[in-house]
Design a protein around this nucleic acid. Structure first.
Lengths: 346, 346
DNA sequence: TAGCCTCTAGACAACGTTGTCAAACGAGGG
DNA sequence: CCCTCGTTTGACAACGTTGTCTAGAGGCTA
């Protein structure tokens, strides 16, 4: 009957519990709980004995049991489109930092822009009883969340509003940012401006298109149907859309790219174009200033959006009860060169 | 005594349990469990009654309790340096995809390159009883993990090996990649080559330095101490290190940048340099081909590394017992222009 | 009809923790 | 010396689920 840490005839893969620690230290179960949680009312001598037993056995509290008992999981869920997208990395990190400052862990999942997968993920997180959710929605119907919200799971949407339910949302000024971008191109003399955006299912794509049309209308400019292309942001799709606009009999002289994925592909296409074409992109991206010409963008601040959303989430968890509302984060036009190229009349 | 979904006099914030469902459906607790888990042995009629009660009450199984009972959490932890770093986004996503294909959720946390925070995170994940861990270590002593591994938490290290314990690791060929990079510069005529790398505490930084020295030695070239600078990858630090090497009486004619953060800053510094300086960077990055000159890099494949690590993790969870081993992922030199610039002798 | 077998269903304990409550103990005051 | 009070301590139930085991209903065969 050895008495070492690995001893006590435990099977591999089994962990000691408080009961084991209590037995070893010769104290009651509750006393171990008290020591583990740093509660008052334990003699230094008892505490020492318990600590020794904990170390010897390699005990670690089972938070699953704790969560079950306490009802709070100290974790929040984040559902976004794709962690590999550079837009979401900083956002996710910002949410994590806020969570951390509240002692919570972050569980995240990628929806891959698939509404069914979004729902599956969200409900899995709810089943885990996360305290709250930050969601960048892929779908446009979130009524499936109603019982969860009623049950007390705080929920904040980011980047796009919730569909068919009333919920908090942190959005950027998609309409205004797009309008500014297009107005900027118009101010530099462009009349035929193309817009390549994300799938029309996506709220931000629609809003940015609306901004585009608004700016064109404000300048009294017509919009030819062939100048607008919404769809997948896959490079091939964007490439062919851009090429079509550039090779038309009356080609566009400027492009407004609907998000960072589109912009990057547009830069590649324009780099191969024989005549200069102006470009403004929605979303800033690393190295935008190093490309030649440097890329003019309408920047949003993903970290700020994440921070704002997470902060609001924890305020909800702290019990504030004001009705859900939408927070709008402003955008900022950063002229770098590509957006100031004058129209090349051919 | 209303009988609607919101009724049954539940407090806001309380969720119905199987017991509630059972009461409402007029069946036993276990029968509800069977229906929820799709187990056999329930008549269609009973099942229908239970399903109705579930829908009416908005019941969702509490996975905390399930986890406690079953012992498996169906979740794995990922600890990395910083989700906002474009190197880790694809890696994290790849790990998530593998986890998803095994029905597991991913909990991740950023260590911010702080060993204490790494340990805190890892132990928090262990307390949650994640089934396994993928760790990109910040520290160099992981003995604190020994009891956890003994207790059955599978662990795979990525990008850097574990410190002072024997554990699985998926690494890239840092030494070979760095040697190739520097040999490439030497082959293009360079004799004075600078190396700016990450902090020497970090394994990859040391290995890449070793590769640098090896290539120089193989070519019979001396290495001046002023050509080597390890430290933070903060832009200011990198900028001043690069500037010092370029402004020396006998300036370096080429730079080898130790990771993507360093490379990006180096590109900016070199862009402002009056004379051309060759550059090879470790890690590929988006738009490396669009910068002028396009940046020659030694590419590694973060998604492949994540996938490899996660796959190995789940094989361990499935019970394979071979001893821990290190998997090495090869690197690939991609010449794009900046690495082929000849030395500008002043 | 007795005996056996299959199938559905529920009672109960257990997972590992924490909240409640009461017992035991020692010290201090009258 | 008794009583009270405060402190330390442990017994017990509960959190919501799942595994085990047994009861009961019903059908089939002999």
């Amino acid at each position: 009957m050895t008495d070492t840490a690995r001893g006590t005839s435990r099977r591999y893969g089994t962990r000691p519990t408080m009961k084991d620690v209590a037995a070893r230290a010769g104290v009651g179960l509750k006393t171990v709980s008290r020591v583990v949680n740093g509660e008052a009312g334990v003699t230094p001598d008892t505490e020492r004995r318990v600590q020794e037993a904990i170390t010897a056995l390699g005990f670690r509290r089972n938070d699953s049991a704790r969560i079950l008992r306490k009802g709070r999981t100290a974790s929040i869920g984040l559902v976004l489109e794709d962690l590999a997208d550079p837009f979401y990395g900083p956002l996710s990190r910002a949410v994590e930092e806020v969570a951390r400052s509240h002692g919570a862990l972050l569980i995240n999942g990628s929806s891959a822009e698939d509404p069914a997968r979004e729902q599956e993920l969200v409900l899995a997180l709810c089943a885990r009883r996360v305290d709250g959710l930050v969601i960048i929605p892929a779908g446009d119907d979130h009524r499936y969340l109603e019982p969860e919200i009623t049950a007390g799971i705080a929920t904040v949407f980011v980047d796009r509003p919730a569909g068919r339910i009333d919920a908090d949302a942190v959005l950027c000024d998609n309409f205004g940012g797009a309008r500014d971008a297009v107005a900027h191109l118009i101010a530099h003399g462009h009349r035929r401006i193309g817009f390549i955006g994300d799938q029309p299912r996506i709220h931000t794509a629609r809003e940015r298109l609306r901004g585009y049309r608004s700016a064109m209308a404000a300048a009294g400019l017509p919009v030819d149907d062939s100048w607008v292309s919404l769809g997948s942001t896959a490079p091939e799709r964007v490439r062919s859309a851009a090429t079509a606009m550039l090779d038309a009999p009356e080609p566009v002289t400027a492009l407004f790219a609907g998000n960072n994925r589109v912009t990057v592909t547009a830069v590649r296409v324009l780099g191969a174009s024989p005549r200069p074409v102006a470009l403004v992109g929605f979303d800033d991206f690393e190295l935008a200033d190093l490309v030649r010409p440097a890329v003019t963008v309408v920047a949003q601040d993903p970290a700020l959006m994440g921070r704002t959303a997470a902060t609001l989430l924890f305020r909800r968890l702290d019990g504030i009860t004001e009705p859900p509302h939408h927070t709008e984060i402003p955008t900022r036009l950063i002229p770098r060169g590509s957006g100031e190229i004058p129209p090349a009349e051919g």
